[in-house]
Amino acid sequence: MRGDRRILGSTATYVVCIVVALIAIGPFLWMLSSSFKEPGDVISLTPHLLPNPFTFDNYVYLVNNGVLPFIRFLGNSAYITVLVIIGRLMVCALGAYGFARLQFRGRDAAFGLLLASLMIPDMLMVLPLYSAYVKAGLIDTHFPLIVPPIVANTFGTFLLRQFFMTIPKEYDEAALVDGASHFRIFVSIILPLSKPALATLAVLTFVNVWNDFFGPLVYLSDVNKFTVPVGLAFFQTQDSTQYGPLMAGATLAIIPTVLVFVFAQKYFTRGISMTGIK
C-alpha cells in the first residue's frame, strides 16, 4: 500500500516535471522550428511544430543578405565578451582582495561607497557617459563596451570580496610567516581556492555581455562593429518582423550560451545561490 502510494507520488512528480520542462523548452523548440520555416509558414492559422517545407533559406539570408555581416557580428560579440571576462576577473579579484584582506584607513567607508554606486540606475548614467565618450572620441569604437564593464564592475568586486572573506585568514598568516608577499598570497592561495566564485562571475559576465543590447545600440553606428543582439534587432521593425531570419539568428546566438550552460551548469546554480540573482 505504502509502496503503491510512493510510486504514485513519484509518477505525479515526474509528470509535473515533464510538463514544466515542456513548457520551458517550448519556446526554444518553436524558435528552432521557425528558423527552418518559410515566411508564410511561421505565423499560420494552423500552427505546426515541424517545418513543412523544411528550408535553410533563413540561415542563408542571415549570412548573405548583402548588407548585414552577421558572421562578423558573432565575431565582435565573441571577442568583446572574452576580453571583458578576462579583464573583469583580473580587476574584480584584485579589488576584492584589497577589500577582503588588506587593512587600510577608510577601507570600510570605501567599500560602502562602492556598494552605494550599485544603487545608481544604469539609465541615469547613459547620457553623461555618452557625452564623455563623445568628447574623448570613443563613440563608434568598442572601447565603451569593453573597458568600463571591466574597471567599473561593483557587483563582481562585491561577489568576490564576500567569497574571499570565507577563506580562513590562517592561510595568509602562514604564507606571510614563510615570507610570501600579498601578490604571492593572492595568486597562490586566494585565487586557487576561489575557483567556484571566479567561474560564477565568468559565467554571469558571459551571459550579461553576450546578450547586451543597449550598450552596442547606443555607442556603435558602424555596421561592421555591431554585435549579435544589435544585428538581430534589424529583423524587427515598428511595422513588421522578419520572423524566419530573426529565429535563425537567435538560434545561432544562443549556441554559445547553451554550451556555456552545459559545461558550467553548476556555476550557474551556484551563482544563483551565492548572489540571489537569476
Binding site: 555581416p69 558572421i71 562578423r72 558573432l74 565575431g75 565582435n76 560579440s77 565573441a78 571577442y79 568583446i80 565578451t81 572574452v82 576580453l83 571576462i85 578576462i86 558602424d222 555596421v223 561592421n224
Partner: peptide, 19 residues
C-alpha cells in the same frame, strides 16, 4: 582556451566588409 576564443572572435570580426 580564452586566447583561442579571443583569436576566433577577432578572426570572425575581421570577416565582412569595412566601412
Amino acid at each position: 582556451g580564452l586566447a583561442a576564443a579571443g583569436v576566433a572572435g577577432t578572426s570572425l570580426a575581421a570577416c565582412g566588409g569595412s566601412s
